[in-house]
Design a protein around this nucleic acid. Structure first.
Length: 486
RNA sequence: GGCCCAUUCGUCUAAUGGUUAGGAUACGGCCCUCUCAAGGCCGCGAUACGGGUUCGAAUCCCGUAUGGGCUACCA
């Protein structure tokens, strides 16, 4: 028999997809792609109280943006659907009833008030093991069935074996983990609204969908023994388990919106490229084993293996993400980067995207910005004449003889042919030499006059893109401004 | 409280009993240079602590500390 590898990412549509969830999805995707397996998206919408209408679209858009294409799922379809748990309710009830019939589960009529009181009592008594006291488990079978038949609201609880024994499993990332049956309480399988809990739905669906490897977040590790008991009760073979470490914020706590972006789409809004986030997330908890860091999807998928995933929680360092994003921005051609920048320029009111020299602007700026938004904003003076001049630089480069110098240079500029970088540079160097000045004495005032700031691309490349008319206009405007000041 | 998990430079990580503990980021410096970036070179910086096992421990074992998760009719 061929061991077919099938993995799933199973988010609950209760909010945006955060980077921790995205990393779980990414590792599932990488594992599938690196082994020729199947990557499935399953929506675990069994919590009607926390369900959010907008969440599903956001999750799907986040995955699409990151390039985590699904082989089976709500959009891709597939033979093991439906891929929404809310459309599989009959299956869960059937399985819960089967366990009740076999004496491995039982209806529980305890009210939430009684359960709350019980919990408070146990906490006050500082009992080592807290949990349901199994009152309804001891109900005479006839009575339970009768009350259920009469329509008394109830949940179905799993009857954890009374026998005290270890429940062990081998986690692909952490190794052997052991729990004991006496620390497990009789957890709920089916809620009183007829919806399954995560535990039941997850196990039933993983079985029904042929999931071979369960790669999920760390927070599920304590639930795994319950799931194993369920597999045993059903008589099903176990999938392999691998629990991924959490991603932490720089202060060591959980990642949250408050501490910066936490959702995948926030990073898109902040000007990050999907391939950069993809690469960065892949390196959180995994490394190829050699010194490679900037790797494309294919390289990462080819190098990925679960045994190189390590169990330590990783801090999300946005500085390094920014660096990596800069690497990807530089690596993209201007033509490939332009479509990302155009909408930002449109929003800033800079351009409708028709100027033929736009790719040159991207070329001049892409190695000078780490995020798309930065690049877009840094381009302001390509589109607008400066209204102010950087104060410190003006004090240094706009002296009393500034107007005369700028006008003299402008006069020479008016005659340069063609108006391109090389002749412009030749002109400046020759002029500097003739005046026995360092070229910087000419270049810096011109840069400030033309862009309003003291930093940016090479002056002559800038002037070429701006064109003669604009450059001369700005130099004259600067000359007048200096005269007004003095 | 109980159970479980984790612990190498600030951060991401490499080294799976024998390395001057390597790389990246960040930070500092130098070079390049019209500025700012980019790039190149150099520097700073780590095995949480205490016991074992071993000729030899970041690596194996135990304990402590610290951090995290679970302990719901949430996932």
């Amino acid at each position: 028999m061929v061991d077919e590898i099938r993995v799933r990412f199973a988010p609950s549509p209760t909010g945006y997809l955060h980077v921790g969830g995205a990393r779980t999805a990414l590792f599932n995707w990488l594992f599938a792609r690196s082994t020729g397996g199947t990557f499935i998206l399953r929506i675990e919408d069994t919590d009607r109280a926390r369900y959010q209408e907008s969440a599903l679209a956001e999750i799907i858009e986040s995955l699409r943006w990151l390039g985590l294409d699904q082989d089976e799922g709500p959009e891709a379809g597939g033979p093991r659907g439906p891929y929404f748990q809310s459309e599989r309710l009959a299956l869960y009830r059937e399985h819960a009833d089967r366990l009740v019939g076999e004496g491995k589960a039982y209806p529980c009529f305890c009210t939430s008030e009684r359960l709350d009181a019980l919990r408070r009592e146990q906490e006050a008594a500082k009992l080592p093991h807290v949990g349901y006291d199994r009152t309804c488990r001891r109900l005479p079978p006839g009575e339970a069935a009768a009350r259920r038949a009469a329509g008394t609201p109830c949940v179905i609880r799993f009857a954890v074996p009374e026998e005290v024994r270890p429940v062990t499993f081998n986690d692909l990332i952490r190794g052997d983990i052991e729990y004991r049956t006496d620390v497990l309480d009789d957890f709920v399988l089916l809620k009183s609204d007829g919806f399954p809990t995560y535990h039941l739905a997850n196990v039933v669906d993983d079985r029904a969908m042929g999931i071979s490897h369960v790669l999920r977040g760390d927070e599920w590790i304590a639930s795994t023994p319950r799931h194993i008991l369920l597999y045993e009760a059903f008589g099903w073979p176990l999938p392999r388990f691998a629990h991924l470490p959490v991603i932490l914020s720089p202060d060591g706590g959980k990642l949250s919106k408050r501490k910066g972006a936490a959702s995948v789409l926030d990073y898109r809004r902040a000007g990050y490229l999907p391939e950069a986030l993809f690469n960065f997330l892949a390196l959180l908890g995994w490394a190829p084993g050699d010194d490679r860091e900037v790797m494309d999807r294919g390289e990462i998928a080819a190098a990925f293996s679960l045994d190189r995933v390590h169990p330590k929680p990783a801090v999300f360092d946005e500085e390094k993400l920014a660096w990596m994003n800069g690497q990807y921005m530089m690596a993209r051609s201007a033509e490939a980067l332009l479509p990302e920048i155009l909408p930002l320029w449109a929003k800033l009111g800079f351009t409708d995207g028709t100027e033929p020299w736009l790719p040159k602007v991207v070329d001049l700026l892409k190695s000078r910005a780490r995020r798309l938004n930065e690049l877009a904003e840094d381009a302001v003076w390509f589109f607008r004449d400066p209204e102010t001049y950087e104060e410190k630089a003006a004090a240094k480069h706009f002296g009393p003889d500034g107007p005369a110098l700028l006008r003299e240079l402008a006069e020479a500029l008016a005659a340069v042919e063609p108006f391109t970088a090389a002749p412009l540079e030749a002109l400046y160097r020759a002029t500097a030499e003739a005046k026995a000045l360092s070229p910087g004495k000419l270049i810096h005032p011109t840069r400030l006059a033309v862009s309003g700031v003291s930093f940016g691309p090479g002056l002559f490349e800038m002037m070429e893109v701006l064109g003669r008319e604009t450059v001369l206009r700005r130099m004259e405007a600067a000359a007048r401004r200096i005269e007004e000041k003095h």
